[in-house]
Write a protein that binds this DNA or RNA. Structure first.
Lengths: 99, 99, 99, 99
DNA sequence: ACCGTGGTTAGCTTTC
DNA sequence: GAAAGCTAACCACGGT
């Protein structure tokens, strides 16, 4: 729809426009990107499973996992809040020439 | 509907009920769980950022990130579909006594 | 950081700011929205129950509901996949100027 | 795994066991169940979209949708609570012979 | 520069 | 108690 995204596929030195692929190079690069992404997403998924396991452990030792989730969530909020406050402070400082 | 989770905090040998912590042991263990979780979540977040970076790279080399996302998503659907088909097959097999 | 949503309640022509309601109009409209939503959610819930009933029927006639669930899920994946493929195709087409 | 679900496919009068389908009848019935389910799930999805639209409308007229969600949720809790209380009352009444 | 939108992720509910 | 499906909040991106 927009005029900017006409070419989703980067071209090599080819003089002719409107070509999807030149000598397979572009396809290779695309594949490489896709695979790198998929690799990392697998790792991410593995970590998510690890986290789940820890909740399982905690439950096994008698904790209530829901409570732990709450705690983790609260601590995250805390750190975000703290970070924001620090940023605001920095902003003030730079505003009065103390940056 | 009933609340089974009366005790979120496991007790040690203490004879008195309704105590949250005995000698700091439980608190320590809880803290350990929380910190392990937070550590893994940080790693997960880092991976998410890495993935984002790759999309950025791809865009920088001329690809359209939206397209790449679609491809990644499609491939994910493929693998899910394959997995489900296998599971369904197993289910059928067990259903006719071939489990 | 800043709270943009200061006014959750839209104002009418009233000249005074920070008022929750003017002449009951806003409250009425809010109530209308809430009730429309609740009505539809009831219908949705009824449908969910109908679906559950069908699984019950199927089980009663001797089918294994787990298997049926798998089939339904698989078919859903199929249609999602098809849809995504079509979208990807459209994306490609627009990418090479055929949009 | 369980012994109960050996036969997911109900048999007709066929004398031979371990058969998935006799004369296409079972397949037909399965298909019918699946399609009824899918039909209802489509309707359910349509309702979900309608609800989403209403939130959109509400936002368009100046309400904050998050707030509305909260209200709807609270009212749901209220009615559940009320229902539970009524059930409890009924229980009491029947317990003292007023059922 | 803002809004709206779609995608992602976490939390809850229900099922087995 | 574990697993999955559904729902709701969150976030980042593209369009206007």
């Amino acid at each position: 729809m927009s005029e900017a995204n006409v070419t989703s596929f980067p071209q090599g030195d080819s003089s002719e426009a409107e070509t999807k692929d030149v000598g397979g190079i572009t396809g290779e690069r695309l594949k490489a990107f896709v695979e790198r992404i998929e690799r990392l997403e697998e790792e991410k998924k593995a970590l998510a499973e690890d986290i789940k396991e820890i909740y399982g452990e905690a439950k096994a030792t008698g904790f209530d996992s829901k409570t732990i989730r709450k705690i983790v969530g609260l601590r995250k909020l805390d750190s975000e809040k703290r970070r924001e406050e620090e940023e605001l402070l920095e902003l003030y400082k730079s505003a009065i020439g103390m940056g």
